[in-house]
Amino acid sequence: LSDEGVIFISIDDNEQAQLKLLCDEVFGEENYVGHFIWVRKKKGSFLNKKIRKMTEYVLCYTSNERIKFFGEDAYSNKMQPIVKRTNSLKMLKFSKYTIKTKLKDGEYKKGKYTSGNTGVEFLNDFIVKDSIVISELLVNGRFVWTQDFLDNELNQGTFVELSSKFGFNVLRHNQDEKFKTPSSLINSDNGVGTNEDASDELSKLLNLELEDVFNYSKPTSLIKYLISFIKKEFINAT
């Protein structure tokens, strides 16, 4: 592989394990990105009495750690929660006038207003006026962010909202620039077809009957989808 190279190799489960060992030797185990699971059939075959095979694998290697894989744009205008049940408990301090809210105007006493692992505990009384928390707010919860990260985000223009159900959500300052990496599962949700679609394509292209088209063909939608992972601006990204 070149320094900017990426390789995708399609294989079924009969030789997938052997191919992985071979590619680790050729390209280096450290350059293994992972394998994608492609849904190659809509209904599967009933000839096998033990398993109905629906998928194949696409192994991926690249020698450039800086290359990013693009899956889809992130939500550019959707609020994201900053409390998750898997995080450890920590306290965050929000300065006055930094939180917008859908709560009604008034004074709210300290304490827990929600239960469960995603609930938060307000450590001081606070006042809401004109849909703004006008008090300094100390909160215990399973926050994703640290205090330093929160302060930096607020300084750059990140928007924080306290929902009517006392949940903390944010719209980050650079959210419209963010993207999701591709899922390890490739199917029709990604606009990718099946072996049947590939046979139809070849039949029309070569003007042949379906039974005369060679086996194990791949749809162009699969090739296009894999190529779309690599965008030029991501090649030399740091």
Rank of each mutant, 00 (worst) to 15 (best):
S135F: 03
Q156E: 14
I230E: 04
T194Y: 03
D130Q: 13
D197I: 07
E177R: 13
F149W: 13
S131R: 09
V128G: 05
F179N: 07
K180T: 02
Y216S: 15
L171W: 04
L138K: 14
L210K: 15
G191V: 06
K224I: 07
K204S: 14
E196D: 14
I186S: 02
L150K: 14
Y225M: 08
H173F: 15
F168T: 03
I186G: 02
V213Q: 05
K178A: 09
S199E: 11
N215T: 08
L222G: 04
E136I: 09
N187L: 03
E209F: 06
E136M: 07
L150P: 01
N215M: 09
K232S: 09
E153G: 05
N169K: 13
N187V: 00
I223W: 00
L205W: 10
N169I: 02
L210P: 01
N174Q: 07
E153S: 12
T158W: 02
S188Q: 13
N152S: 15
D189V: 04
K204T: 09
K218C: 06
E153W: 03
T181Q: 11
S221A: 08
V213K: 03
S228R: 00
S228T: 03
E209W: 00
N215V: 09
I134T: 15
T220V: 09
R142L: 03
L206W: 15
